Simulated assay, not measured.
Amino acid sequence: MCLVCCLGALLALGCKAKPADPAAVEPAAQAAPLAEMGVVAVAVAPFTQVFSETELLFGEVPPGSETAPAASLHALDTNLRAAMRSPAPSDRVPVCMASVPVTGTRALDRWVQIGSCAGVRHLLVPQVAYWAERHGGPMGSDRPAGVVLDFFVVDVQEHSIVGHYRYAESQVPLSANLLTMDKFLARKGQFVLATDLGREGVQQAMKRMGL
C-alpha cells in the first residue's frame, strides 16, 4: 500500500510539468575504451559551445539551443577534470585556442593545429551541442532541463578522431515515462538544472571512454 501511495505521489509531482521538447538527438556510435587503442592519457581542452555543424567535429547540432552561461561551462570543466583518471597537462591548450581562428578552418583541422601548438599527441575536445535550462523549480517545471554534450579525442599526429561519445539527456516528468523511475529517484524526485545533467554526462562519458 505504501509503495502504491509513493508512486501516486511521484506521478502527481510529475504531472505538474509538461514533457520536455525532444531536443536531444540520438547518440552517435560510441567508441570503445580508448586504452584498447593505446590512448592512455590525453590533454584536455576547455568546454566550448557550438551552434553549427561547421564548429562540430562531426554529427548534428540540435536546433533551439540556449547559450550556456560561462559559469556553467566552467563547472563542466571542473567536473571533467575531477572525473578523469589521468589527464595530461594542458596549460597551453587555452593559449593555443586563442591563436587559431575559429572561422575559415575545418573543425578537425583547427583542433589538430591547437594540439600541435600545445605539443600534445591526443587532445580531448568537449563540446556543448545543446543547452536548455530548467524553467520552474525543483518540484515543478513547465520545461525541464536538457543537454547534448560531445566528447571527441583527436589524434594530432594522425590528423584523425579516435574516440567519440555523445551524451543526450532531456529530463521528463515521471508521468510521461515510467521507465525513467531510476533516474527520477536518483535525482531525489526533483527537476534538476542543466549543470546537473552535464555533470552526469561528464561522469558517464569518462567511464564509457575509459579516461
Rank of each mutant, 00 (worst) to 15 (best):
Met1Leu: 15
Cys5Thr: 14
Leu7Val: 12
Gly8Tyr: 14
Ala9Glu: 11
Leu10Arg: 02
Leu11Cys: 10
Leu11Ser: 10
Leu11Gln: 12
Ala12Cys: 11
Ala12Asp: 08
Leu13Gly: 09
Gly14Leu: 02
Cys15Trp: 15
Lys16Glu: 14
Lys18Tyr: 12
Pro19Ser: 06
Ala20Pro: 05
Pro22Val: 06
Pro22Ile: 03
Ala23Val: 14
Ala29Val: 15
Gln30Pro: 05
Glu36Trp: 05
Gly38Phe: 08
Val39Leu: 03
Val40Asn: 14
Phe47Lys: 12
Gln49Val: 11
Gln49Ala: 11
Ser52Lys: 13
Glu53Asp: 12
Leu56Arg: 01
Gly59His: 05
Gly59Val: 01
Val61Tyr: 00
Ser65Asp: 13
Ala68Arg: 04
Pro69Thr: 11
Ala70Trp: 04
Leu73His: 12
Leu76Gly: 02
Thr78Met: 12
Thr78Gly: 10
Arg81Met: 15
Ala83Arg: 07
Ala83Asn: 15
Met84Leu: 02
Pro87Ser: 07
Ala88Glu: 13
Pro94Lys: 08
Pro94Asp: 07
Met97Phe: 00
Val102Phe: 06
Thr105Tyr: 03
Thr105Arg: 09
Arg106Tyr: 02
Arg106Ser: 09
Arg106Trp: 04
Ala107Leu: 04
Leu108Thr: 09
Asp109Pro: 10
Arg110Asp: 02
Val112Asn: 03
Ile114Met: 05
Gly115Pro: 01
Cys117Thr: 08
Val120Tyr: 03
Arg121Lys: 14
His122Ala: 00
Leu123Val: 00
Leu123Gly: 03
Pro126Thr: 06
Pro126Asn: 04
Pro126Asp: 07
Gln127Met: 05
Trp131Asp: 01
Ala132Ile: 06
Glu133Val: 09
Gly136His: 09
Pro138Ala: 04
Met139Lys: 13
Asp142Glu: 03
Arg143Ile: 02
Pro144Phe: 06
Val147Met: 01
Val148Ala: 09
Leu149Phe: 09
Phe151Gly: 08
Val154Met: 03
Asp155Trp: 07
Gln157Ser: 07
Ser160Ile: 02
Ser160Asp: 04
Ile161Gln: 05
His164Met: 03
Ser170Thr: 13
Ser170Gly: 14
Ser170Leu: 08
Pro173Gly: 01
Leu178Phe: 04
Thr180Leu: 12
Met181Ile: 15
Asp182Glu: 07
Lys183Cys: 09
Ala186Arg: 08
Ala186Leu: 15
Lys188Asp: 02
Lys188Phe: 13
Val192Gly: 04
Leu193Gly: 11
Thr195Asn: 14
Asp196Tyr: 00
Glu200Phe: 13
Glu200Gly: 12
Glu200Cys: 08
Gln203Arg: 14
Arg208Glu: 05
Leu211Met: 15
